[in-house]
Every structure is written in structure tokens, then in C-alpha cells.
Simulated scan of single mutants.
Amino acid sequence: MTTKIVRQREWALPPAPVRREVLSAAPTDAGAAPPVLFVPGFGHGAWAFAEYWLEYTCERGFPAYAMSLRGHGESGSASKATLRAYVHDVTQVAASLPRQAVLVGHGASALVVAMALARYPARAAVLVSPVFGGPGAAFSALLRNPLATVPAVFGRPLRPRRGQLFSRELPVADRTRHAARLGGASARAQWQLVAHRAPEDPVGAPPVLVVGSPDDRIAGRAALTAVARRYGGAPLLFPGMGHDLMLDMRWKEPIAAILDWLDKPDQ
């Protein structure tokens, strides 16, 4: 793979501007710690990280930010948004931060972050429960959740079941509360998730960590291993958890491990 230097289409036809929701939590003394930008997966907003991970990251001494892609959370609506527009959102928010940031993408937004790495020189990146799409992933989703996947083929939001997002350890009341806040990505972005090309190489060769659960019913162990191998590593696994690691019962374990990894001298 190669990284493009000049992208004529993006210069000539930039994505339309949109209001972007960005939540933040700043430590009293961040020192040299890089800012961490959390990018929620399709259907999720910044709220998904504001629940636990945002404040915990701040308590660990990292400036923490959580954004909502266009059409998600409290960001401006964008019914025809493309993957390229989502990548534009991430790179624009990252570029606005005071220092070179760590990008953390969840679910399908792990792919968005991977694409953004070819445009933004990140300090590091973390791909949480990554969904990199492609025909194989679409067929797997159809087998696992046909009632949600078939309507998505015809432009409806792809809505995973609560059992696919969370472990059974999470109380039903919490599962219901989180599921009620879910929205959906645009139909165009969902289609592009199936047909997209592999992401370009990251600029600057940042370290990339893949985190997930072998019990994830959306991004299973094979998918986690494939994405991790792409970046020259192995996935960091948390058995017994669901797809939404940041909202599950043992939410602290993954984020603590991620921040430990970032604290290493070679990151």
C-alpha cells in the first residue's frame, strides 16, 4: 500500500461543514501527556465515552476528548454522510487539539480512525472492537442478526441487539438505557463499509493497539486478530465482555490497559 500525498478530489470537493459535538475533560496538570480523542462507533455518540472512559482518562493525567461524527449524538445532521465525511470530522477535530493526539476508534469508527491515520500524524492509535467491514463481515452480520441487517440493506439504520453489544453481567436496566440512546449511521456510509478499500498506511508509522473481546458477537476473535496483524501486533483481549467495552460491566479493565500502554516510554 502507499499513502497519497495529494488528494485532488478532497481538495476540489471537501465534505460540507457541520457542527461537531466534542466533550472534554482536562486534568489539572497534564504535563507532557498527549490528548486522547475518542471516536464512537456507528450509532453511538460522544455520550458512549463520556459515561466512564472520558473522566477515567482525565484522572490518569491525559487530556480527554470524545466527539460525535456528523449525524450522531449532538453533532449536526447528515443523512447522506460518507465514510470520507466521517474521516474529515475526525481529522478536523484532531487537528484542533493542542498537541499531537492519540486516536481511539470504536466499532466501525475504528475503520474511520484507520483511514484518518493516512491524513493525520497521530501520536498513536487504538482500535477498539474494530469493524473493518467488507463483504465477509456483511455476510457474517446477516447470519448473526438478520432482523437488523436486512433493513439496513434498504437504507434503515443498522441496529445491533443489546445482547451483541453488552455482556450478560451488565444489568438489564443499563443495557436498556444505553440501547435507547443508539442512533444510526447514514445509509451511504453503511454501504461503503461493505465495499470500501483497505485503509492506506498511516503517516509517521504510529504504534497501533487493537483491543477487543473474544466473546464479541460483532467483531469476533478472528476479525480482531486480522486487524491486529495488519499493524504488526496481536489483539489485547478481554474475555467475557461485549462489543461496547466502554459501557460494559468491567469497563475499567480495557481503558486501564490502554492507558498503561500509552504510558510506556516507547509510545
Rank of each mutant, 00 (worst) to 15 (best):
L237S: 11
R175M: 13
E169Y: 01
L165M: 14
A256W: 00
R181P: 05
V227E: 05
M241L: 11
V172M: 13
R229A: 10
A219S: 15
L193A: 09
G184N: 02
G136W: 01
P151E: 07
P146W: 03
G232Y: 04
D215W: 02
R161S: 15
G134P: 04
I258R: 09
G204T: 07
P254N: 09
G204F: 01
R168N: 13
W261R: 07
A138C: 07
A205K: 14
V203I: 15
D248Q: 10
H243E: 09
S186E: 02
R161G: 14
T176M: 12
L143P: 01
P206C: 10
R230C: 01
A187V: 01
R162A: 15
P202Y: 06
M241H: 08
V172G: 03
V172T: 05
V210F: 03
P206N: 10
N145M: 02
P199S: 08
G183T: 10
A138H: 12
R175P: 04
T176E: 12
A198H: 09
L170S: 10
A180V: 01
G183Y: 01
I255P: 14
R177E: 10
L224Y: 03
R229N: 03
P239W: 02
E200N: 06
D215C: 09
A219N: 05
R197L: 11
P239D: 02
R197Q: 12
A185G: 11
K252M: 09
G232I: 04
L193H: 13
R229P: 05
Y231T: 04
R156A: 14
P171M: 03
I255K: 11
L143A: 13
G136K: 12
S140N: 06
R168F: 03
E169S: 13
I218Y: 06
R197H: 13
I218E: 00
H243S: 11
V208P: 01
F154P: 09
A138S: 15
L237E: 15
G233T: 13
L142H: 06
V172H: 13
D244L: 06
D201A: 14
P146T: 07
A180L: 08
T149H: 08
V194G: 08
D215K: 07
P214Q: 10
R221G: 12
G212V: 01
A195Q: 11
P160T: 10
G183A: 04
I255S: 11
R156S: 13
E253N: 10
A152D: 04
Q190I: 05
P207T: 06
P207H: 06
V131F: 08
L142K: 09
G204L: 02
D174K: 12
D244P: 02
R181D: 10
G220P: 11
G134N: 09
M241Q: 15
L143C: 11
A222N: 06
D248F: 04
Q164R: 07
L224F: 06
G155F: 00
I258V: 15
G163L: 09
R229H: 09
P171E: 04
G242N: 08
V150C: 00
P171F: 03
A198T: 07
R175Y: 04
L259E: 09
S186A: 14
A179R: 06
G232Q: 05
G240N: 01
L259Q: 06
G163A: 14
D216E: 06
A228K: 03
F154R: 13
L237G: 08
D263S: 15
R162N: 00
D244I: 00
R168Y: 00
T225E: 15
L247I: 04
G183E: 02
I255Y: 09
L143H: 08
R144G: 12
L142N: 11
V211P: 07
